[in-house]
């Protein structure tokens, strides 16, 4: 079963990360291929994604179910394909930064255009404030966010689909984690 895991570091406390992550509406658009989602209950939600396996893309409908809701540290979920023969699940973990478990991320993972925009908008104020941006950019990491995701295609063609699915999972996981981190850092940088 293709399974990937990716950890990113954040320069904000992990309870703030949880405050953002616990509401899926906050980060849903950060998912690769996101089209739509619908929250059905406290545990269940429907997701429509444009799934890309590197050669072609298809609209995939998934049902997600939260099986463990242990904020602010951990959320476990399962995934079930509604229009494709796939299933999977994952774990999201948040916690204080441990240098031994995760390498230090670059100073800022925000897209450069976004960073420049923020810098331009607040240059005057940040200068007056003694270079807040500079200080924020070099502030040490305080928390880490880990996504572990596994997906498996079933049926006779499963081995073929999984061969294509595997390489596509890690970039999707990295993108989600990094976009959340970039978003939170951008908010945090506002004076």
């Amino acid at each position: 079963m293709p399974e990937v895991s990716y950890t990113t570091t954040l320069r904000i406390p992990h309870d703030q990360v949880w405050g953002f992550v616990k509401d899926m509406n906050n980060w849903a658009p950060f998912l690769t291929g996101y089209q739509a989602h619908e929250i059905l209950s406290e545990t269940d939600s429907l997701w429509t994604l444009k799934g890309d396996v590197g050669i072609l893309s298809r609209t995939v409908k998934l049902k997600a179910r939260v099986t463990e809701w242990s904020g602010p540290d951990k959320v476990t979920f399962t995934l079930e394909g509604l229009n494709e023969d796939v299933e999977g699940g994952g774990v999201v973990t948040m916690g204080p930064y441990h240098a031994s478990t995760v390498p230090l991320a670059p100073p800022l993972t925000i897209a450069s255009w976004f960073r420049r925009l923020i810098a331009a908008l607040f240059r005057k104020r940040s200068t007056k404030a003694g270079g807040t941006l500079q200080r924020e950019a070099t502030r040490p990491p305080q928390s880490q966010l880990t996504f572990t995701l596994r997906m498996e295609a079933g049926g006779p063609t499963g081995p073929i689909v999984n061969a294509l699915l595997g390489p596509a999972l890690l970039p999707a996981t990295e993108q989600l984690a990094n976009k959340i981190a970039a978003h939170l850092h951008a908010i945090e940088l506002r004076p």
Partner: peptide, 15 residues
């Protein structure tokens, strides 16, 4: 006979 295909072998080749 699509089910005659050796899917495991084909998946390994792709990988």
């Amino acid at each position: 006979k699509p089910l005659n295909l050796p899917f495991k072998l084909l998946g390994e080749r792709l990988s």
